[in-house]
Design a protein around this nucleic acid. Structure first.
Lengths: 225, 225
DNA sequence: CCCGGTCCCCCCCGATTGGGGGACTCGGAT
DNA sequence: ATCCGAGTCCCCCAATCGGGGGGGACCGGG
């Protein structure tokens, strides 16, 4: 069963080029084309393609808005592969939030484009290396590095930070003591100095501080909930 | 100038395979190999490779810890490409936070692996399609996609959710009572039903739950810290 | 009409927490 | 050689928290 692809680009020449290039593949079938966002929504609804190659820069309705509209309203597993000329910057995040499965630049080689279409059709995702790099750096760097917050974190000893993450996991003093193989009194004194150094008054505030400071981040916890 | 690569894997056969495969390329030179994390740190320091192919599962010190140690202490632009057998799950985030520039599975084709090495050496980043997908979904959907978490949040009444955000801000029961213009006993009973409904045992866990579920997000709090 | 659900309030009691002391060891800095 | 910080552990005591019980007011639907 071949992959049903729709191509959306306001430049007829570019659109036709991609369409014929993809059509040459045995397992890819170009079922529709569109020149703007509104037309893209229409052909998505009528032809129900597996993959949509979407340009960002378009009159009438840009690719991001069209992507969001299509992905939100689709009742079949449609994948949108953003294809743009420019080094993306802000577009990346908007596109990914809109529901795009990929983001590649137009200088991509034909073979790589075909491979990209197959990848997203298969349920994977694919980004241009520069985009991946940007996304990783954004993901890896803690968002909030308020100097005042981090500076107070620095005043804690490494052991105290260790205790704090355990506190942030919701563990009681005795539970923390067992985890760290120390006495309950030790944990108690650690928690006390943590609260004192951070200017907090109870462990609930300590948990909040741990999250706000980026010491622990939502999702990286071992607590399943 | 060729790309200087180091290969780190505890299985000598796998390590040798990758090394010879990469060595066949004109623009790639394998300068060192290591069988565990501590050896990896050593060869990284002595050979200063451009790219390190790093396995995760290793005795002595796993690839994640080694990656973090190398990236943090390196004074030259070293790129680490994680190469693992398993579908990553939680390893991905730890690896990317540790400073890895890529994350590919061992079922990758030789040509793609070579291309991946060139990509990361060139400053780009590269992830396996399934990993990219995971990262995108995590990035695009604010935090909580866990149906189990949100469903439990739905069981709370609106008033209880209101109390929960106050709890997550680190307020004591009496402070919450003043904020909401009710009696302290009322807040107490609300907190009790919150803990019961969510299956938690203390308010620190409630704070963690509030953050993990996305009920409150780092940075949107009124607590300045 | 009564019933279930929700919200609000109250009392008691044990467990935990938070704050105040102090003491010992170890390793590094002075 | 001495001091100091970090880490470990102990005491006491007041306050808060968490769990159990109960009860009353309101609202919407059967």
């Amino acid at each position: 069963m071949s992959i049903r692809v729709a191509v959306v680009d306001d430049q007829a020449l570019v659109r036709g080029g991609f369409a014929t290039m993809l059509g040459l593949q045995d397992d890819i079938e170009v079922v529709a084309e569109a020149g703007d966002g509104t037309a893209a929504i229409e052909i998505a609804r009528t032809h129900r393609p597996d993959v949509i190659l979407m340009d960002i820069r378009m009159p009438e309705m840009d690719g991001l808005a069209a992507t969001e509209a299509i992905v939100d309203s689709a009742d079949w597993p449609v994948k949108v592969l953003i294809l743009t000329t420019f080094d993306p910057d802000e577009y990346v995040y908007k596109a990914l939030r809109a529901g795009a499965s990929g983001f590649v630049l137009k200088d991509i080689s034909p073979e790589d484009l075909v491979a990209a279409v197959r990848t997203v059709a298969d349920g994977g995702a694919l980004l241009a290396p520069s985009v991946t790099r940007r996304l990783i750096s954004r993901f890896a760097t803690p968002p909030s590095l308020d100097a005042s917050v981090v500076s107070r974190l620095d005043r804690l000893t490494s052991r105290e930070r260790e205790v704090l993450v355990a506190v942030a996991a919701g563990s009681s003093n005795v539970e923390i003591a067992e985890e760290l193989f120390v006495g309950a009194a030790t944990v108690k004194s650690h928690v006390s100095s943590i609260l004192t150094k951070l200017g907090l008054s109870n462990r609930a505030q300590a948990v909040a501080f741990a999250y706000e400071s980026g010491l622990v981040k939502p999702g990286d916890s071992d607590i399943g909930f």
